[in-house]
């Protein structure tokens, strides 16, 4: 199969077949990170710009490690070190970066659709590392890779995503990706965190209370509660949220006996997830992080690797 995309802006642009292909590639890249010498020359001479307009530790580090393990040169830019603090527009920054001929630009941005604007302006491959409340496609892929590894399949997998769906790009990428892969996706949160039209827009089922969403679930994905949203006001406060929606061991027992627990991080321990569940035997939260590197290596390779660039 040939991967024909210039950019990765969202899982909405990929077919199930293409996602399977990326996950398969990621599997084969995983092994590199387990070697004593974790470096291959695949992307030698390629330049990857990591442009993080919004703070991120995990995703940026993961992309940077992925690029370095493939021998690409990576350059990191953040909003405070870029000209954007001087009032330069994203479009101008893009054109300037483009003038230096990078092969790929990885963009994290607080505005939904910012990577789409960037991609329309540059020849480089653009990888969306999270745009506003839209998508976080590499997170969606690494989540699916993790589920597939542990569960052996995605088709007909029952996945419950619990938290602030409205403001979650992780939820959107997972809803899109998992639905295309044939999984049964349930989303759950207080109605203030569920945008109208989720069922129609993503083909998921919607639950207001976690007990019903958890019933028989194979995968439980908890989303981070953003503390500042308590003032919005989307919910009365952390106390009631933790009590009604937090994943305790007791509540997890409602899911399938072999259900796994996921979280895209960073976690609010004691709010959306209890420490014993986060650290417990069902947690695959750190596997997600490990898989993140493999997925990003696969994507960099597929987008800018090989002869297709010449």
């Amino acid at each position: 199969m040939e991967f024909k995309h210039k950019d990765l802006l969202g899982l909405e642009d990929l077919s199930a077949e293409e996602m399977v292909y990326i996950l398969d590639q990621a599997e084969s890249f995983k092994e590199i990170s387990e070697r004593p010498i974790k470096k291959v020359p695949t992307l030698r001479g390629k330049t990857v710009v990591l442009f993080f307009y919004e703070p991120s530790t995990r995703t940026r580090t993961s992309f940077e490690i992925a690029a370095k393990r493939l021998s690409a040169d990576s350059v990191s830019l953040s909003a405070s070190t870029s000209s954007m603090v001087k009032g330069e527009t994203l479009a101008d920054t893009a054109r300037n970066l483009e003038a230096m001929n990078p092969d790929a630009i990885v963009l994290r941005h607080s505005s939904s659709g910012a990577p789409h604007l960037l991609a329309s302006l540059v020849r480089s491959a653009v990888i969306n590392a999270g745009d506003g409340t839209h998508e976080h496609p590499t997170q969606g892929l690494l989540d699916m890779l993790t589920m597939r590894q542990v569960k052996g399949r995605l088709d007909r997998l029952r996945v419950a995503i619990i938290g602030d769906i409205a403001h979650s790009r992780v939820a959107r990428s997972n809803m899109i990706g998992l639905s295309k892969m044939g999984a049964e996706v349930r989303v759950c949160g207080p109605p203030t965190m569920l945008p109208p039209g989720l069922e129609q827009a993503y083909g998921v089922s919607v639950f207001f209370r976690p007990e019903s969403a958890l019933e028989g679930a194979d995968v439980v994905m908890m989303l981070r509660v953003q503390m500042e949203r308590a003032q919005a006001p989307l919910f009365p406060g952390l106390r009631e949220y933790a009590r009604l929606y937090g994943l305790s061991a007791q509540r997890l027992a409602l899911a399938a006996p072999d259900a796994i627990v996921m979280h895209p991080g960073p976690m609010n321990r004691g709010v959306e997830i209890s420490p014993e569940v986060a650290d417990g035997p069902r947690s695959v939260i750190l596997n997600q992080v490990t898989n993140g590197v493999a997925v990003r290596m696969a994507l960099l390779y597929l987008l800018i690797g090989g002869e297709r660039e010449s």
Binding site: S112, G113, G132, T133, H134, R172, P195, P196, G197, L198
Partner: peptide, 13 residues
């Protein structure tokens, strides 16, 4: 507009 499209695009309605 708040609706299906804003939901998909992740834009505030």
């Amino acid at each position: 507009n708040e609706g299906l499209v804003s939901c998909r695009l992740g834009l505030a309605g």
